[in-house]
């Protein structure tokens, strides 16, 4: 299986190449991708240079243009698609069907991947995108079990890519409005979930309180591992207890299911984390590269240490094995 790695900066891109990535996904420095964070991402020139660097070492580059086009401002996305194709991107990762149509029409030879943001999770939806726009690969939402992925793989006519490690989005991706509800900005339109502009941390009697858009999202006791202030992983006062309503601060790790995913027909494993630093990219990519070539018995040793880098310093296999069902 291919190892698809994140890069938020040219430095992280180089680290991913050196650590053993098969392909790297990255985005332009604007609202056309779902990690539109300050100081992150690539200028046009940086993208061209990164793609050339990757190609010289046999590493593919997938350019994420996976937000939904703003009405009246479609040119921003069209130009980004034109520029990514001209720069030599191996594939474009798209969520908006109108942008898929543009790419399929204007750049018919350009390989097209369907972003997780498209939230395509059944065979009818996937095959529609394949037949309509020539999509070659689908990045699956993180809401399916391994058995459901295997069943889907038998019914679709494109490659499947699944998230294997990193941030865990537990919502219907591309359709989640929690961030919009609190901040007015979302990953779907502006490319930011829980934008830093609306995040505040403060100390309160030894506790660390995280806030998003003026709402308290969590309160961490002294030395308690912390997480991002996203609504879906907030701790709320419910009835008589303080509890996580949707999900704990936790990251995804499905390396225990590697063989099952391979048997299911999954073509590529994706590491989440374009917003993370190059040290994270280097360590996670090299660890997963070693794990991929290790025996099932030896695999946990390669991955265990990554828990320390994870949100809340804990990992889960999430929906891939729905224990709560």
């Amino acid at each position: 299986m291919e190892l698809i790695c994140p890069a938020g900066t040219p430095a992280a891109y180089r680290e991913a190449v050196q650590a053993g990535a098969d392909a790297i996904y990255c985005g332009f420095r604007d609202e056309t991708n779902a990690r539109n964070f300050p100081g992150l991402n690539f200028t046009r020139d940086e993208m061209k240079a990164a793609i050339a660097f990757g190609r010289s070492r046999g590493v593919d580059t997938y350019v994420a243009l996976n937000t939904f086009m703003r009405a009246g401002a479609e040119d921003i996305w069209y130009r980004a698609a034109d520029d990514a194709a001209a720069a030599g991107a191996t594939a474009l990762i798209l969520a908006d069907m109108a942008l898929m149509d543009y790419v399929a029409t204007k750049h018919p030879d350009q390989r097209l991947h369907v972003s997780v943001q498209a939230s395509a999770s059944n065979a009818v939806a996937v095959n529609f995108l394949v037949e309509s726009f020539g999509a070659k690969r689908l990045v699956l939402p993180r809401v399916l079990t391994v058995a459901e992925i295997a069943a889907l793989a038998r019914k679709v006519s494109c490659e499947l890519e699944v998230f294997a490690f990193g941030g865990l989005c537990v919502m219907a991706e591309g359709r989640c409005s929690l961030s919009s509800y609190v901040t007015g900005k979302s990953p779907n339109m502006q490319g930011v979930c829980s934008p830093a502009s609306h995040v505040r941390y403060r100390e309160d009697g030894g506790d660390m309180v995280s806030e998003l858009g003026g709402f308290t999202i969590n309160r961490f006791g002294k030395n308690e591992p912390a997480g991002y202030p996203t609504l879906c992983k907030g701790r709320f006062h419910i009835a008589d207890s303080d509890a996580y309503a949707f999900e704990d601060p936790v990251s995804l790790d499905v390396m225990d299911h590697l063989d099952a995913l391979r048997a299911a027909g999954v073509k590529a494993l994706k590491i989440e984390g374009r917003q993370r630093g190059k040290a994270y990219v280097a360590e996670v990519v090299s660890s997963l590269r070693r794990a991929l070539s290790a025996s099932p018995q030896a695999r946990p040793a390669h991955v265990a240490q990554l828990r320390k880098l994870s949100e809340g310093q804990q990992t889960t296999s999430g929906a891939y094995e729905k224990k709560w069902r």
């Binding site: 964070f37 300050p38 100081g39 992150l40 934008p195 830093a196 502009s197 995040v199 505040r200 941390y201 403060r202 100390e203 660390m208 961490f220 002294k222 030395n223 308690e224 591992p225 912390a226 997480g227 601060p249 917003q275 993370r276 630093g277 040290a279 994270y280 360590e283 320390k308 880098l309 994870s310 949100e311 809340g312 310093q313």
Partner: peptide, 22 residues
């Protein structure tokens, strides 16, 4: 080192304008 990981482990504390710090 990864700043987010240090934050998760509570080894670092950050305050103020998070967008600027990011």
């Amino acid at each position: 080192i990864d700043g987010d990981a240090m934050f998760f482990s509570r080894s670092l504390s950050v305050t103020g304008d998070m967008e600027a710090m990011l």
